[in-house]
Simulated assay, not measured.
Amino acid sequence: MAAPMRCILRGRLCWVRGMWRCQKAAYTEDARKETHFGFQTVSEEEKGEKVYRVFENVAHNYDIMNDAMSLGVHRFWKDWLLQLMKPTPGMQLLDVAGGTGDIAFRFINYIRAQREKWIRQELKLQQDLSWPDISKTYQNKEQSSLMGSRAVICDINKEMLRVGLQKSLRLGYSEGLSWVAGDAEELPFDDDKFDVYTIAFGIRNVTHIEQALQEAYRVLKPGGRFLCLEFSQVNNPMLSKLYDIYSFQVIPVLGEVIAGDWKSYQYLVESIRRFPSQEEFKALIEDVGFCKVNYHNLTNGVVAVHSGFKL
């Protein structure tokens, strides 16, 4: 009886070892899945590390370089995004890859401007108020100056978050903001939590765009809105040629002169060319479940704002 049992055990052990080898091979194959880092072909794991280093390197000069590269036009693009969003009192915003706070600060400014407008309208309807009553009205409104609105800035890069937090303190944004280190592909938030999800010039840097879109859908409340501002494909042939010349021959030079970093800005230019077209990206957004998806080209398609709703 002993000998057959040993054979059975040996056979089972060989089967287990065979399965382990297959699993190990499959795991190794997954680990070696290739993707793009600009025009380079790299493993998915390597891309994550490289992108992290890029933004770690550019964090301190990020705002200066944005102004230099876009000749300041990026400010108009971000303002346009907020006008499209039209924030309302009590809105909960998640800004992903928003380390330096540009979208969140605009969101806070928009809510504050609405508040001031409503205070004036309320006081105009009560012309017989005394000065103490008017003063009291302002004091009561001050206690809830953002009317329940809040912006959460989530970025995988801790250096970008640190620069953004310092910037918020310098500019006087002391309330209504939270800074969270997190991966766009695996957000550290509950389901159905936010009214609006924004990502500006960040989604082209993630390894799995579809996964980031799925996470955006997950954390939005039913009725919530997805808004993405990203570089796209220029739809004017003449401008496209000039844009290519400027991108490849000027932007890396600016990166070297201003930030002492040619390679990071070379990657950023290349990553734009690898990003899906407006229609292709629209299809990806629809595939994860968003409805009423559309996009708006700005500056002849240099950038595009994609919008969708979780319905």
Rank of each mutant, 00 (worst) to 15 (best):
A3S: 15
R10T: 12
R10M: 13
G11I: 09
R12T: 13
R12Q: 13
C14D: 14
V16A: 14
C22E: 12
Q23C: 11
K24C: 04
A25T: 10
A26T: 06
Y27L: 12
D30K: 13
E34C: 08
F37I: 10
F37C: 10
G38V: 05
F39L: 14
F39V: 09
V54A: 00
E56C: 03
V58D: 01
A59F: 01
Y62D: 07
D67F: 07
R75K: 15
F76E: 06
K78H: 01
W80P: 02
K86S: 08
G90I: 00
L93N: 03
G101P: 01
R112W: 01
W118N: 09
I119Q: 09
E122H: 14
L123G: 07
Q126L: 12
L129P: 03
S130R: 09
W131E: 14
I134H: 02
Y138H: 09
N140Q: 14
S144D: 11
S145E: 11
R150K: 15
A151Y: 03
I153W: 00
E159G: 10
R162K: 15
V163M: 08
S168C: 12
L169D: 13
A181H: 10
D183S: 01
E185V: 01
E185F: 05
L187H: 05
D191T: 12
D192T: 00
Y197L: 02
T198W: 03
G202S: 01
N205I: 01
I209D: 11
Q211P: 03
A212F: 04
A216F: 01
V219I: 12
P222M: 09
G224V: 02
F231E: 07
N236L: 14
D244L: 11
S247F: 05
Q249V: 02
I258F: 08
G260P: 00
D261R: 01
D261K: 00
W262S: 04
S264F: 06
Y265A: 05
V269F: 02
E270T: 06
S271Y: 05
R274Y: 08
E279M: 08
A283Q: 13
A283Y: 10
E286W: 01
E286A: 00
V288E: 03
F290E: 00
K292Y: 08
H296C: 08
H296R: 15
N300C: 15
G301Q: 07
V302E: 00
V302P: 02
V305M: 12
H306M: 13
H306E: 12
